[in-house]
Amino acid sequence: MNLENDFKKYILELGADQVGFADLSEIPGEHRQHLNYGISIAKAIDPEIVRYIASGPNQNYYKEYKRLNAELDQIALQVSEKIKAMGYEAIAKTTTTVASNESLRTDLPHKTVATRAGMGWIGKCALLITKDYGSAVRLTSVLTNLKLSTATPINESKCGNCTLCTDVCEGKAVKGINWHLGMEREAYYDAKACRKEARKKCDLENIESTICGQCINICPYTRRYIKI
Protein backbone atom coordinates (compact mmCIF):
# COMPACT_ATOMS: atom_id res chain seq x y z
CA MET A 1 0.00 0.00 0.00
CA ASN A 2 1.30 3.44 -0.96
CA LEU A 3 -0.39 6.15 1.09
CA GLU A 4 0.38 8.99 -1.33
CA ASN A 5 -0.77 7.07 -4.43
CA ASP A 6 -3.95 5.97 -2.69
CA PHE A 7 -4.70 9.51 -1.53
CA LYS A 8 -3.97 10.96 -4.95
CA LYS A 9 -6.28 8.43 -6.62
CA TYR A 10 -8.99 9.17 -4.07
CA ILE A 11 -8.77 12.93 -4.58
CA LEU A 12 -8.74 12.63 -8.37
CA GLU A 13 -11.84 10.44 -8.15
CA LEU A 14 -13.50 13.21 -6.14
CA GLY A 15 -13.05 15.47 -9.17
CA ALA A 16 -9.63 17.08 -8.85
CA ASP A 17 -7.44 17.51 -11.93
CA GLN A 18 -4.11 17.79 -10.13
CA VAL A 19 -2.92 16.83 -6.64
CA GLY A 20 0.38 17.39 -4.83
CA PHE A 21 1.83 16.86 -1.35
CA ALA A 22 3.92 19.54 0.34
CA ASP A 23 6.32 19.79 3.25
CA LEU A 24 5.34 23.04 4.97
CA SER A 25 7.67 22.78 7.95
CA GLU A 26 9.83 25.73 6.84
CA ILE A 27 6.82 28.06 6.83
CA PRO A 28 6.12 29.86 10.15
CA GLY A 29 4.01 27.60 12.34
CA GLU A 30 1.27 30.14 12.95
CA HIS A 31 0.67 30.43 9.20
CA ARG A 32 0.09 26.68 8.78
CA GLN A 33 -1.78 26.07 12.05
CA HIS A 34 1.37 24.23 13.22
CA LEU A 35 0.67 21.36 10.81
CA ASN A 36 3.67 20.21 8.78
CA TYR A 37 2.02 18.89 5.63
CA GLY A 38 -0.18 20.33 2.93
CA ILE A 39 -2.25 18.72 0.19
CA SER A 40 -2.65 20.97 -2.83
CA ILE A 41 -5.70 20.33 -4.99
CA ALA A 42 -6.43 21.94 -8.38
CA LYS A 43 -9.33 21.93 -10.79
CA ALA A 44 -8.87 23.23 -14.33
CA ILE A 45 -11.09 25.96 -15.73
CA ASP A 46 -13.16 24.81 -18.71
CA PRO A 47 -11.08 25.65 -21.81
CA GLU A 48 -14.16 26.96 -23.63
CA ILE A 49 -14.63 29.50 -20.85
CA VAL A 50 -10.97 30.54 -20.91
CA ARG A 51 -11.08 31.22 -24.66
CA TYR A 52 -13.61 34.01 -24.14
CA ILE A 53 -11.96 36.04 -21.37
CA ALA A 54 -9.31 37.67 -23.56
CA SER A 55 -10.88 41.08 -22.91
CA GLY A 56 -11.84 40.42 -19.32
CA PRO A 57 -14.52 38.71 -17.23
CA ASN A 58 -18.01 37.75 -18.33
CA GLN A 59 -20.97 36.01 -16.72
CA ASN A 60 -19.95 32.56 -17.99
CA TYR A 61 -16.53 32.93 -16.41
CA TYR A 62 -18.11 34.13 -13.16
CA LYS A 63 -20.38 31.06 -13.07
CA GLU A 64 -17.39 28.79 -13.73
CA TYR A 65 -15.41 30.58 -11.01
CA LYS A 66 -18.17 29.97 -8.47
CA ARG A 67 -18.71 26.38 -9.59
CA LEU A 68 -15.06 25.46 -9.23
CA ASN A 69 -14.77 27.14 -5.83
CA ALA A 70 -17.80 25.23 -4.55
CA GLU A 71 -16.51 21.90 -5.89
CA LEU A 72 -13.04 22.49 -4.44
CA ASP A 73 -14.55 23.32 -1.06
CA GLN A 74 -16.39 20.00 -1.08
CA ILE A 75 -13.29 18.06 -2.11
CA ALA A 76 -11.20 19.69 0.61
CA LEU A 77 -13.85 18.94 3.25
CA GLN A 78 -14.10 15.29 2.18
CA VAL A 79 -10.32 14.89 2.22
CA SER A 80 -10.04 16.47 5.67
CA GLU A 81 -12.79 14.20 7.04
CA LYS A 82 -11.03 11.14 5.64
CA ILE A 83 -7.79 12.15 7.35
CA LYS A 84 -9.57 12.83 10.64
CA ALA A 85 -11.18 9.39 10.44
CA MET A 86 -7.65 7.98 10.32
CA GLY A 87 -6.89 9.68 13.63
CA TYR A 88 -4.93 12.70 12.38
CA GLU A 89 -5.57 16.45 12.35
CA ALA A 90 -6.72 18.09 9.15
CA ILE A 91 -7.95 21.56 8.19
CA ALA A 92 -9.74 22.21 4.91
CA LYS A 93 -8.76 25.68 3.71
CA THR A 94 -12.10 26.40 2.06
CA THR A 95 -13.25 29.74 0.69
CA THR A 96 -14.95 30.45 4.03
CA THR A 97 -11.72 29.94 6.02
CA VAL A 98 -9.35 31.86 3.72
CA ALA A 99 -10.14 35.42 4.73
CA SER A 100 -9.26 38.50 2.70
CA ASN A 101 -8.21 41.84 4.20
CA GLU A 102 -7.10 45.30 3.18
CA SER A 103 -3.68 44.02 2.15
CA LEU A 104 -5.36 41.42 -0.12
CA ARG A 105 -3.27 38.73 1.57
CA THR A 106 -3.78 35.47 3.39
CA ASP A 107 -1.30 33.85 5.77
CA LEU A 108 -0.86 30.77 3.60
CA PRO A 109 -2.00 31.18 -0.02
CA HIS A 110 -3.11 28.05 -1.88
CA LYS A 111 -0.46 28.80 -4.51
CA THR A 112 2.27 28.66 -1.85
CA VAL A 113 1.17 25.15 -0.90
CA ALA A 114 1.08 24.29 -4.62
CA THR A 115 4.66 25.45 -5.24
CA ARG A 116 5.80 23.51 -2.15
CA ALA A 117 4.00 20.49 -3.68
CA GLY A 118 5.87 20.87 -6.96
CA MET A 119 2.72 21.59 -8.95
CA GLY A 120 3.89 24.84 -10.53
CA TRP A 121 5.51 28.22 -10.01
CA ILE A 122 4.32 31.76 -9.42
CA GLY A 123 4.00 33.71 -12.66
CA LYS A 124 4.74 37.37 -13.20
CA CYS A 125 1.00 37.93 -12.74
CA ALA A 126 1.17 36.33 -9.25
CA LEU A 127 -0.91 33.32 -10.31
CA LEU A 128 0.19 29.71 -10.10
CA ILE A 129 1.43 28.49 -13.49
CA THR A 130 1.22 24.76 -14.17
CA LYS A 131 2.72 22.94 -17.13
CA ASP A 132 -0.53 21.15 -17.96
CA TYR A 133 -3.09 23.94 -17.51
CA GLY A 134 -1.11 27.16 -17.40
CA SER A 135 -2.80 29.51 -14.94
CA ALA A 136 -6.29 28.20 -15.84
CA VAL A 137 -6.77 26.49 -12.48
CA ARG A 138 -8.56 27.10 -9.21
CA LEU A 139 -6.92 25.82 -6.04
CA THR A 140 -7.64 24.64 -2.54
CA SER A 141 -5.53 23.13 0.24
CA VAL A 142 -5.78 20.77 3.18
CA LEU A 143 -3.36 21.10 6.09
CA THR A 144 -2.54 18.02 8.15
CA ASN A 145 -0.13 16.31 10.50
CA LEU A 146 -0.46 13.06 8.55
CA LYS A 147 3.08 12.32 7.41
CA LEU A 148 3.26 12.28 3.62
CA SER A 149 6.05 11.74 1.11
CA THR A 150 6.31 15.16 -0.49
CA ALA A 151 7.37 16.54 -3.85
CA THR A 152 10.42 18.65 -4.61
CA PRO A 153 9.35 22.30 -4.24
CA ILE A 154 9.57 24.71 -7.16
CA ASN A 155 11.48 27.75 -5.96
CA GLU A 156 11.74 29.99 -9.00
CA SER A 157 9.79 31.08 -12.04
CA LYS A 158 9.96 29.29 -15.37
CA CYS A 159 8.44 32.23 -17.25
CA GLY A 160 11.79 33.43 -18.57
CA ASN A 161 11.63 36.43 -20.90
CA CYS A 162 7.89 36.14 -21.61
CA THR A 163 6.07 39.45 -21.05
CA LEU A 164 2.60 38.60 -22.37
CA CYS A 165 0.78 38.95 -19.04
CA THR A 166 2.69 42.16 -18.34
CA ASP A 167 1.70 43.62 -21.71
CA VAL A 168 -1.98 42.65 -21.48
CA CYS A 169 -2.58 43.98 -17.95
CA GLU A 170 -4.56 47.20 -18.34
CA GLY A 171 -4.21 47.96 -14.64
CA LYS A 172 -0.39 47.91 -14.87
CA ALA A 173 -0.37 45.49 -11.94
CA VAL A 174 2.15 43.09 -13.49
CA LYS A 175 5.69 44.47 -13.35
CA GLY A 176 7.36 41.93 -15.62
CA ILE A 177 9.70 40.53 -12.96
CA ASN A 178 10.30 36.83 -12.42
CA TRP A 179 9.34 35.41 -9.02
CA HIS A 180 11.62 33.39 -6.79
CA LEU A 181 11.20 31.91 -3.32
CA GLY A 182 11.33 34.57 -0.60
CA MET A 183 10.47 37.47 -2.92
CA GLU A 184 7.89 39.91 -1.59
CA ARG A 185 4.80 40.02 -3.80
CA GLU A 186 5.02 43.80 -4.14
CA ALA A 187 8.34 43.41 -5.94
CA TYR A 188 6.70 41.88 -8.99
CA TYR A 189 2.95 42.51 -8.69
CA ASP A 190 0.62 45.28 -7.46
CA ALA A 191 -2.43 43.54 -5.98
CA LYS A 192 -4.35 46.77 -5.38
CA ALA A 193 -3.88 47.95 -8.96
CA CYS A 194 -5.11 44.57 -10.18
CA ARG A 195 -8.16 44.72 -7.93
CA LYS A 196 -9.02 48.26 -9.02
CA GLU A 197 -8.96 47.38 -12.72
CA ALA A 198 -10.76 44.06 -12.20
CA ARG A 199 -13.47 45.79 -10.17
CA LYS A 200 -14.01 48.23 -13.02
CA LYS A 201 -14.41 45.38 -15.50
CA CYS A 202 -16.72 43.42 -13.21
CA ASP A 203 -18.98 46.42 -12.63
CA LEU A 204 -19.51 46.64 -16.40
CA GLU A 205 -20.62 43.00 -16.46
CA ASN A 206 -22.67 43.10 -13.22
CA ILE A 207 -20.33 40.58 -11.59
CA GLU A 208 -20.28 40.57 -7.79
CA SER A 209 -16.80 39.07 -7.32
CA THR A 210 -13.64 40.88 -8.34
CA ILE A 211 -12.14 38.78 -11.12
CA CYS A 212 -10.52 39.46 -14.49
CA GLY A 213 -8.88 36.61 -16.39
CA GLN A 214 -6.89 38.39 -19.09
CA CYS A 215 -3.54 37.20 -17.76
CA ILE A 216 -4.93 33.65 -17.53
CA ASN A 217 -6.03 33.70 -21.16
CA ILE A 218 -2.77 35.11 -22.54
CA CYS A 219 -0.33 32.76 -20.76
CA PRO A 220 1.46 30.49 -23.28
CA TYR A 221 1.01 27.50 -20.99
CA THR A 222 -2.73 28.23 -20.76
CA ARG A 223 -2.95 28.58 -24.52
CA ARG A 224 -1.34 25.20 -24.99
CA TYR A 225 -4.04 23.77 -22.70
CA ILE A 226 -6.95 25.49 -24.46
CA LYS A 227 -5.37 24.79 -27.87
CA ILE A 228 -5.06 28.33 -29.19
Rank of each mutant, 00 (worst) to 15 (best):
A117V: 03
R51I: 09
C169E: 02
A54G: 12
A85M: 11
G171Y: 03
C125F: 05
L77W: 04
T115M: 10
A114Y: 00
T96H: 12
L108G: 01
A114E: 00
H110L: 04
I154T: 07
S100Y: 13
K63L: 09
S149E: 15
Y88V: 10
S55M: 12
I39C: 05
K131E: 15
A85R: 12
T112I: 13
K131Y: 14
K158R: 15
T96G: 06
V142Q: 02
S135V: 10
K158E: 15
G118F: 00
T115V: 13
A99P: 02
S141P: 06
L35Q: 07
T115W: 01
P47A: 12
G160L: 14
H110Q: 07
K147A: 15
C165W: 01
L128F: 06
A173G: 08
G134C: 11
S80R: 04
A151I: 01
T106R: 05
A151R: 07
L108A: 03
H34E: 11
Y65T: 05
G118A: 02
Y133E: 00
D107S: 08
A173F: 05
I41M: 06
R105T: 15
M119Q: 09
E71R: 08
N58F: 04
H34T: 05
Y62W: 12
T163A: 07
S141L: 04
V168H: 01
D73T: 12
K131I: 12
K43H: 03
L146G: 08
E71V: 07
A92K: 00
V79D: 01
L148P: 04
N145F: 07
R67S: 10
I75M: 03
R51L: 12
K82Y: 12
V98W: 00
Y52P: 00
G118Y: 00
A114I: 00
L72Y: 00
A173R: 02
T150Q: 07
S141M: 05
R138A: 05
S40L: 04
G123E: 09
D46T: 13
T97A: 07
A114V: 01
K172L: 14
D107H: 07
T166A: 06
A70T: 11
I122K: 01
G160Y: 14
R67H: 11
I83D: 03
P109W: 09
N69I: 07
T166K: 11
Y65V: 03
T140C: 08
E102T: 14
I83K: 02
A117C: 05
G87E: 10
L77E: 15
M86H: 09
T94F: 06
Y62A: 13
K63C: 04
T166F: 04
N69S: 13
A90T: 06
K66N: 14
D46H: 14
S157D: 12
L143S: 03
Y61N: 01
T152M: 11
A44H: 02
G123K: 05
T130M: 10
A92H: 02
E48A: 14
E102A: 14
A151H: 09
L143H: 02
G118Q: 01
I91Q: 09
